[in-house]
Design a binder for these strands. Structure first.
Lengths: 196, 196
DNA sequence: CTAGGGTGTTACCGGTCTGTAACTTCCAGA
DNA sequence: TCTGGAAGTTACAGACCGGTAACACCCTAG
């Protein structure tokens, strides 16, 4: 029966999921491999059989996170097929939801800040993944018929990035509380400029 | 002659300045007290005679940074006395200059991300100092005669915060390159709304 | 049943971290 | 010149870090 319904989770995947969660909550330098393996119900040797080093594990975690974020975009297309403007508004709503639900911000941005050495192997990956996300948002803006799609996408990117970090430094009552209003105002403004 | 022109810098101040620089460049968890004292040309015992702990040193560094930032605002008032709108534009220019000159972003935001424990003693200080900065920007916007001063100030805050972190994750060619255009566009837009 | 790969366990290495103790040296002010 | 406090020096404690070696186990495919 080649497995059946039990479907035991492989140690590698348990480690990856646990590490993602712990890196997200406590930061990369704030979590040791011992703590990860213990929380994942395994041990250090098994971790090092599946990952070359802690840095390698970090990179795999970032890729997994980006992959999940990619699925989010597909969900927008599935919910509003072809309606790019609705998808853009859905993006704003989703971003706001994430701000309300979680106060630890973006794993990739946090990692870039924590791993300050510019030649750290994770930095390449972070840049690649962030650029891919930017491209998706630019395309969404362009296909939504917004004038100056790149500028709107970049503005929304910075707003969200700023909201995520502001949430951590001044809390939920700070400027990040106005994110939706700002984003919607910008979209309206850019659409007006395109229609004019 | 009570000292004369030599004016030797006290060990405490040397430690504070060195720590500020090293925390900024390498992060808080990325630098140890040994490295700080060595770079400051002193030793660990002297550090612990002036600061209760590393956390205490971190807090003092953040206060010093905020103090220097406060002097920046005074410089705006000195350069454009009474002309609040000119001061707001000067703020935008200054922010852009800092983005170009330094890619490590805001010490307080970085610290908030690195010190993920919400009850960390530095978090209170970070929140206080960030709120003070927000208040100054809100006042500047209001006195510049902008409608919805709070919303403009918060938007500009998030934009700058986002630009600083984007600079670290995707580099200078990313969205942060458009910061001035975004900020100036926002100011124009909000001024138009007020005049209407 | 058996062989073998994935897994778990224990112990260890060398290094770094924050923080402290005990002592010496230096230097400015009276 | 004397003295007291600030600063430097050395050594150490205790904990944690990333990473590895050697070995026992278990479970599944053949």
């Amino acid at each position: 029966m080649e497995d059946g319904t039990v479907e035991r989770i492989r140690p590698r995947d348990r480690i990856l999921e646990t590490a993602r969660d712990m890196f997200h909550k406590h930061g990369i330098k704030g979590v040791g491999v011992d703590a990860i393996t213990e929380a994942a119900g395994t041990n250090k040797m098994t971790l090092y059989r599946h990952f070359e080093s802690k840095d390698d594990l970090v990179i795999e975690c970032l890729r997994a996170t980006a992959c999940k974020a990619g699925a989010m975009w597909d969900a927008f297309e599935a919910e509003y097929p072809g309606d790019k403007l609705a998808q853009l508004h859905a993006w704003v709503r989703k971003a706001a939801d994430m701000l309300n639900a979680d106060s630890r911000g973006c794993d990739m941005a946090n990692a870039a800040i924590e791993l300050s050495e510019t030649d750290h192997p994770a930095r390449r990956v972070i840049k690649e993944l962030k650029e891919a996300q930017r491209d998706r948002l630019v395309n969404l803006c362009r296909e939504a018929g917004v004038g100056q799609a790149e500028l709107l996408a970049d503005t929304l990117s910075l707003l969200l990035e700023g909201a995520r970090v502001s949430l951590q430094s001044v809390g939920a009552e700070g400027p990040s509380a106005q994110f939706v209003r700002m984003a919607e105002g910008l979209i309206t403004s850019f659409r007006g400029a395109a229609a004019r």
